[in-house]
Design a protein around this nucleic acid. Structure first.
Length: 673
DNA sequence: AAAAAAT
């Protein structure tokens, strides 16, 4: 069960006050509101706020916690003896510790996070942010100075917080025959079980607590590659366990190697600023993500895998109070998860130095390197103090990776391994994909039909193209009596996280979202993804529908298609065929017509200059002699043959007309960026 | 004719 699960219930902690949020809003209701109540009389502007969604659950957790501890002011310093020294060196395995917490949503009420609404991210460091320490400087330094490969003492309460969350049973056995391509010089052999590689006591203990049994395909390959200090570009389908595929080996290396120079640098920084002054932090590992919620989710995973270690993970992102984040950093930061803008801010404020950052991860790497993000990535990676490529280790992960972006990505990689589990950009066959012709004017009533046929307990994620559209549709559904919420970039960060929490918990089983929720978010029990508006590029489509059908579960994706979606016709058809989905005959005809209409077949102006790559598609089955290795290992754009479909079963849909034919549209034509 | 990401 080696999946990077999403945020687990049961450990985020309510802030004593709500100062940690953007917008300076002081009008939170410090108590729990039923979603349908309209009792909030504060003037908050948007109608959604009048529905009581703004209520922060300051009171919500008390009952749920059974009064067993006060999450705001936990006893401290943390008692090492309190949990029994006889356990200090040992690990609970899944069975003895947590079998009763099961893998369903209705877990024990004692650990049930439901109704907690929103709980601050930066209040929990005192007892959760990496385990081991209270607030005192002494404790922190003693933690830094110890043997990093040895587990720190248990903390049962923290263990419950981190590991009692849902753990959907995954069934990846049937993926064992998925074609895998791993190319590059001296590629390490893959593993078959977590025991096949030495990840150390701490990581193995946390794997057991997470109830992971076997590595997923991407983990089988990525773990030994990362462990052997190789750069990596990894492509694997949505929901196939990529987050753990980098967190586990990176943390295991950090535990094995200790803090090294970073510790001295952090201490020196403390000296400069006075004994108890503000220390600049020098994270050993940096993980960059394209959205704030994804950064938070990765951070939550990192907390699990750094339990009982000396590594302290932190997260920084925009929209939340920076002072709070700075204070959290100052308590120690060895692994930092960040969105780019806030990280740059932290660097410029002298709070973060990347001088000793030996591990760099770009999650959703194709997004991180596209036009919107690339300058910021270069600013962070190339124009500051980050060790150069070849010195640091750079890892990129995504389910999609257009060829042009792969080529760009080589700027940041040295002698890297290219790993593709299945064809790059393909969708899981666990997702049933439906495409229905729906005129704009019929979309709402069609949506209502779909929703009325949806079971009460399953979550439905509805994607729209614009923020305005998200607000409008959410209001419409609300008026129709559905418990729904929405997430998009114009909402406050606090509202965004609350919306996500309410969706995850099932309190609002319908979430209307823009692209902000398309990538990476791991929400269990999403049964249906609806593309109310189809996106204009196929990568976005792949990521959106990948919010369902995760970890071996089945999912459904329904897309509303009409005249406006001509641009995605061909790519959508290809995706459906490859995933062995039913293809409406009208779609086939349209794709054929569109092929002849379209003249500009480049992916974008930016990439329109020809490079050798003729085919952005790749298949894991397509390794051939003319590829990567056969040309001295430097032709990394090739990654081997991209057209050796052979027994891969993908057909020839991507090969008929080479590079251009795979992209029959261009975003640039429409939006000029 | 857009989303996201610092303030």
């Amino acid at each position: 069960n080696a999946f990077a699960a999403g945020r687990q219930g049961g450990y985020t902690i309510a802030p004593a006050t709500n100062y940690g949020w953007d917008g300076g809003r002081n009008n939170f209701v410090n108590g729990y509101h039923d979603n349908r109540m309209t009792g909030n009389t504060f003037n908050r502007g948007p109608p959604r706020m009048e529905r009581g969604r703004g209520g922060v659950g300051g009171g919500g957790y008390r009952g749920n916690r059974g009064g067993s501890f006060n999450p705001i002011n936990p006893a401290q310093p943390m008692s090492f003896g309190g949990y029994g020294n006889e356990n200090a060196g040992g690990w609970n395995t899944a069975k003895d510790a947590y079998s009763s917490f099961g893998n369903n949503r209705g877990k024990s009420a004692f650990f049930n996070d439901r109704g907690n609404a929103n709980r601050g991210r930066f209040e929990h460091g005192g007892f959760g942010g990496g385990g081991g320490g209270g607030n005192s400087r002494w404790v922190e330094e003693s933690r830094d100075d110890g043997d990093w490969s040895k587990p720190t003492p248990r903390n049962e309460r923290l263990e419950h917080e981190l590991f009692s969350g849902s753990n959907t049973g995954i069934n990846f056995e049937k993926y064992d025959d998925i074609p895998v391509e791993a190319t590059g010089q001296n590629c390490p052999h893959h593993i078959e079980s977590f025991q096949d590689v030495d990840m150390g006591e701490i990581v193995m203990g946390n794997i057991a607590l997470s109830r992971y049994t076997r590595p997923t395909p991407v983990q089988k390959y990525a773990i030994p590659i990362v462990k052997s200090k190789r750069d990596l570009m990894a492509c694997a389908q949505t929901g196939s366990g990529k987050t753990a595929a980098f967190l586990l080996p990176i943390l295991s290396q950090i535990y094995a190697d200790g803090p090294g120079e970073a510790l001295n640098a952090a201490k020196a920084s403390g000296q400069e600023n006075g004994k108890f002054g503000r220390r600049k932090q020098y994270p050993i590992s940096l993980v960059l993500a394209p959205t704030r919620e994804l950064a938070l989710q990765i951070y939550d995973e990192a907390r699990k895998f750094s339990y009982r270690s000396r590594v302290r993970p932190c997260v920084v992102y925009g929209g939340a109070d920076i002072g709070q984040q700075i204070r959290d950093l100052e308590r120690g930061c060895h692994l930092l998860v960040a969105t780019p803008g806030r990280l740059v801010d932290m660097m410029e404020r002298g709070k973060i130095g990347l001088d000793y950052c030996n591990y760099l991860v770009l999650d959703e790497a194709d997004r991180m390197l596209d036009m919107g993000f690339e300058p910021q990535i270069r600013r962070i990676v190339e124009q500051d103090t980050m060790p150069h490529k070849g010195i640091r280790q750079t890892m990129m992960f995504s389910a999609t990776f257009p060829k042009e972006i792969q080529i760009l990505a080589r700027d940041f990689l040295e002698e890297y391994i290219f790993l593709a589990v299945g064809r790059v950009g393909s969708t899981s066959e666990n997702i049933t994909q439906k495409v229905v012709w729906v005129e704009e004017s019929d979309k709402r009533s069609f949506l209502l039909d779909l929703l009325s046929a949806t079971g009460k307990d399953s979550l439905t994620l509805v994607f729209v193209e614009t923020k305005k559209g998200a607000d409008a549709l959410e209001d419409f559904l609300y008026r129709e009596g559905y418990a729904c919420t929405s997430i998009h970039g114009d909402r406050s960060q606090r509202d965004r996280e609350e919306a996500l929490n309410q969706f995850r918990s099932g309190k609002c089983p319908i979430l209307v979202a823009t692209a902000v929720a398309a990538r990476g978010l791991d929400i269990s029990n999403v049964k249906h993804v609806i593309n109310f508006d189809l996106p204009s590029d196929i990568e976005e489509y792949v990521h959106r529908i990948g919010r369902t059908g995760r970890v071996g579960n089945l999912g459904l994706a329904t897309s509303f298609f009409n005249d406006k979606n001509g641009n995605i016709t061909k790519d959508l058809l290809d995706i459906l065929v490859e995933a062995k989905q039913e293809v409406p005959s009208w779609l086939e005809s349209l794709a054929y017509e569109h092929q002849h209409k379209s003249s500009n077949r480049g992916r974008s102006k930016r990439f329109s200059g020809g490079f050798g790559a003729r085919d952005y598609r790749q298949t894991a089955a397509g390794v051939n002699a003319g590829g990567f290795g056969g040309r001295g290992g430097r032709n990394q754009a090739g990654h081997g043959g991209t057209r050796g479909f052979g027994g891969g079963g993908f057909g020839n849909f991507y090969t008929s007309d080479g590079y251009g034919g795979n992209y029959s549209h261009s975003q640039v034509d429409w939006w000029g960026n």
